[in-house]
Simulated scan of single mutants.
Amino acid sequence: MVMKPDFLGGGGVQEDDFSPELQVESPEGELHLRFYIPSHQEFALLATGIKEVIELSPDRITPIPNASPLLLGTLNLRGRVIWVADLGQFLGEVTPLNTDRAEISVIAIEEQDTIVGLAVEGIGGMDWLDIQNSVAPNNVPDIMAPFLRAEWVLDSQKGNSLKLLDQTAILRSARWVG
C-alpha cells in the first residue's frame, strides 16, 4: 500500500499525485480458473460462467443409484440440488476421481437455469489469459475434442498445455444421459 500524507490526513487525492510507476496496468485477456483432473492435465474455464468453487467433504455428495457412472451424485448448493460429475471421466479419463479424501474441489458452472458441479483433482488458481495467444486444440482424444475451445502451449518439449473448456458444450452434452 502506498502511504500518502494526503490520504492519511483525510485530504483529497489529486490526479497528479500518482506517478506512472504506481499505475496498475490492466491485465490482458479474460479471467479464467485453472484446475487439474486426475491425470494431471491442466484445464481452464472462463470465470464468468462459474457460479462457485467449493471444497467439500465427499459425504456432502449424495450418491444416486442407477445414475450415469459420470455422476458422483447430488449436492445441496445454497438450497438448490445440483448434479456433481467427475470431470475427468466426462472428458474420457480412465482413472476415476479419488473421492476417498478429506475434501473434493467442485466447480459449479451455470448457463441460464442449468447448474452442474464438476469435481476435479485440484484448483490451480485464477489467471488472465488472452485467447489471441492460444491455438486450436491439438492431439486430443475424440471424446474430449467437442468440449475444447482452445489451448495454450506451456512447454512444447514436454507436451504441457492448458486446455480451455467450453462450459456450454459440457452443460448441453448428450453424454449426461448415457
Results as ranks from 00 to 15, higher is better:
Leu31Trp: 08
Ala174Leu: 13
Ser156Trp: 12
Ala169Cys: 02
Ala136Cys: 10
Pro58His: 05
Ile107Gln: 04
Val116His: 04
Phe7Arg: 14
Ser19Tyr: 12
Leu162Arg: 12
Ala108Val: 15
Gly11Val: 00
Val2Asn: 00
Ile115Gln: 01
Glu151Leu: 09
Ile104Val: 15
Met3Leu: 13
Ser68Asn: 15
Asn160Ser: 12
Leu45Tyr: 06
Asn138Leu: 13
Asp155Lys: 12
Gly79Glu: 00
Asn139Val: 05
Trp176Cys: 04
Gly10Ala: 03
Pro58Phe: 05
Asp166His: 09
Glu28Ile: 05
Pro69Gly: 14
Asn98Pro: 12
Gly88Thr: 02
Gly29Phe: 10
Thr95Asp: 10
Leu77Lys: 03
Leu118Arg: 04
Ile131Lys: 12
Leu8Lys: 07
Leu148Ile: 08
Leu87Phe: 03
Val135Ile: 15
Asp6Ala: 15
Ile104Ser: 05
Leu70Ser: 08
Gln167Arg: 06
Lys4Glu: 13
Leu97Ile: 11
Glu110Arg: 10
Pro5Lys: 04
Gly125Trp: 06
Val177Lys: 09
Met144Gly: 04
Pro137Leu: 04
Ile131Gly: 00
Ala169Trp: 05
Ile131Ser: 07
Ile37His: 01
Gln14Gly: 15
Gly10Leu: 02
Glu93Gln: 13
Ser134Gln: 11
Pro27Gly: 09
Leu45Cys: 11
Asn76Gln: 07
Leu91Lys: 00
Gly12Val: 02
Phe18Trp: 14
Gly9Glu: 13
Pro65Arg: 14
Leu171Tyr: 03
Ile50Val: 09
Lys4Tyr: 07
Ala108Arg: 07
Gly178His: 11
Arg101Ala: 10
Gly29Trp: 07
Asn133His: 09
Thr168Asn: 10
Asn160Asp: 12
Gly73Asp: 13
Ala150Cys: 07
Asp142His: 11
Ala102Phe: 07
Glu151Val: 00
Leu171Ser: 04
Glu111Tyr: 03
Ile107Gly: 03
Gly124Phe: 07
Asp113Val: 08
Glu151Asn: 03
Glu110Thr: 01
Thr62Pro: 00
Lys158Asn: 15
Asn66Tyr: 06
Ala44Trp: 05
Leu97Thr: 10
Pro96Lys: 01
Ala44Lys: 01
Leu56His: 03
Pro63Ser: 14
Glu93Phe: 01
Arg34Trp: 02
Ala174Asn: 14
Phe7Leu: 15
Gln157His: 11
Ser19Asp: 13
Gln89Pro: 05
Thr48Asn: 08
Ile123Ser: 06
Trp83Phe: 07
Val84Ala: 03
Arg149Ile: 06
Leu129Met: 12
His40Asp: 11
Pro141Cys: 01
Asp142Met: 08
Val135Arg: 05
Thr99Pro: 06
Glu110Ser: 05
Glu151Met: 07
Pro38Met: 00
Thr99Met: 06
His32Thr: 06
His32Tyr: 12
Ser68Thr: 12
Leu71Val: 14
Glu52Pro: 03
Asp142Glu: 15
Asn139His: 15
Gly117Ala: 11
Arg34Thr: 09
Ile123Asp: 05
Glu103Ser: 15
Gly122Glu: 11
Thr95Met: 10
Asp166Pro: 01
Glu28Gly: 02
Pro20Ile: 00
Asp59Phe: 14
Ile54Met: 02
Leu31Lys: 09
Ala150Glu: 08
Asn66Gln: 14
Val2Glu: 02
Gln23His: 07
Asp113Asn: 15
Leu165Thr: 00
Tyr36Ser: 06
Leu171Ile: 08
Gly9Pro: 09
Ala85Trp: 02
Ile37Phe: 02
Val116Lys: 01
Asn76Cys: 00
Lys4Pro: 03
Phe7Glu: 10
Ile61Asn: 02
Ser161Ile: 07
Val153Asn: 09
